[in-house]
Design a protein around this nucleic acid. Structure first.
Lengths: 214, 214
DNA sequence: CCCTATATTGACCGATTGGTCGGGCGCCGC
DNA sequence: GCGGCGCCCGACCAATCGGTCAATATAGGG
């Protein structure tokens, strides 16, 4: 018992998980049949039940793995060094790149968050959200403490703004692409560079910035 | 033929549409059965087929109506007067309020946009997006032309940023609410006020704003 | 070689799915 | 009174759903 198998452990299990991940990321839970998963994995439907007790458990396992992988990806975007401004630039770019690199994971997890009627694993999907959000808030707070950023804004609000900018870009990229006025749909790095610059410097010309305060 | 009925026209039809709208906004297409819709509407399943040829047509009709209503709501947020800054403040507040007032419509339309596997009526759902986005871009452009806003940013980028801030807030409000650092989850007006202020004035203290340009 | 444990399968189950059909109910013009 | 027509329903259909089961293939250890 417990001896390490020389042949790939759980090779069949991984095949099933990969197939289910692909299908569940494209279509909703009820729109994906166990037959379709078996077909995609190249095995029989009954064989799935050798590894997973039922459809919900399989879905949960897929979401669990996706959530873990996504969380790891996104956390990599947070660890950076240098001035706060540099960290923010790095975060924005890496965060969006992570989303775009693994769109299946993002769609999978985000759909679970949006679904109002069937919270199968909502708390679990929210976990990835937590770490990134908290880390970003911490960065902003330290920026305020060091005097690199204004002290009169709520860090959580700016964190929401930045995350929202990236998530919204990810979600609506296909729509934005066929707008002539949008030149950044296929240039996520440029998008984030612009976003961060605007956030840092604002939209008001400096000469008239004081007129806003009234 | 064509005589106006004194009794409510399409009263049954409206009942079905309302029931379907409620269910389709909570759960995905395949997760909502015709039986459930009939039950919710208080009629028989067979009766639905007297008004709609099949499930897809019903869903399409629901999405059509929702998209139209949402579009109307959101367009109201755009028409405003005064300085560009005032218009932006008004837009942000009204736009988010519209989303929060009719969450069923938003979820319905937005799910259709996110679904990668079954574009039942994507183009149709995107229609609402178009008007709001264009209108917001126009506002920003006029602000630049009048010199009220800086001239060195892309209007479409800022429009994306603002819409994303609201949509993301709408989507993740339930998650944000149980973060202690977030005080604005139940104060959308305050959230948007903060967003707009940051966008206008930036995060950098004015004294050190020039250090960013390097 | 056999024995055991894991993998894998086709056939099958009851329940539910989207959709159909024939007929009943009620109202309005004749 | 009496057709006709829009509205509405219970019963039914084939197909598919998630899930079960008994039977096989496939290994590796003794």
């Amino acid at each position: 018992m417990g001896e390490l198998p020389l042949t790939l452990e759980g090779e069949g299990r991984q095949r099933i998980l990969a197939a289910a991940e692909k299908l569940f990321s494209d279509k909703a839970f009820d729109a994906v049949s166990m037959n379709a998963i078996a077909l995609q994995a190249g095995i029989s439907k009954a064989n799935i039940y050798h590894y997973f007790p039922n459809k919900d458990a399989l879905y949960l396992a897929v979401l669990r793995a996706a959530s873990r992988n996504l969380q790891k990806l996104l956390n990599d975007a947070v660890d950076a060094h240098g001035t706060v401004v540099e960290v923010l630039r790095h975060f924005a770019r890496c965060h969006l790149q992570a989303l775009l690199d693994r769109p299946e994971l993002v769609r999978l997890v985000w759909r679970e968050i949006l679904e109002k009627g069937a919270p199968r694993a909502r708390e679990f999907a929210e976990q990835g959200f937590a770490d990134v959000f908290s880390a970003l808030v911490a960065v902003l707070e330290s920026g305020q403490a060091r005097g690199e950023l204004r002290a009169d804004f709520a860090p959580a609000l700016v964190a929401t703004l930045m995350l929202g900018a990236n998530v919204f870009f990810f979600q609506s990229r296909d729509i934005l692409r066929h707008y002539p006025a949008v030149g950044f749909a296929d240039d996520p790095a440029g998008y984030d560079a612009g976003i961060v610059e605007i956030l840092l410097r604002g939209l008001i010309p400096e000469s008239s910035a004081d007129t806003v305060r009234a």
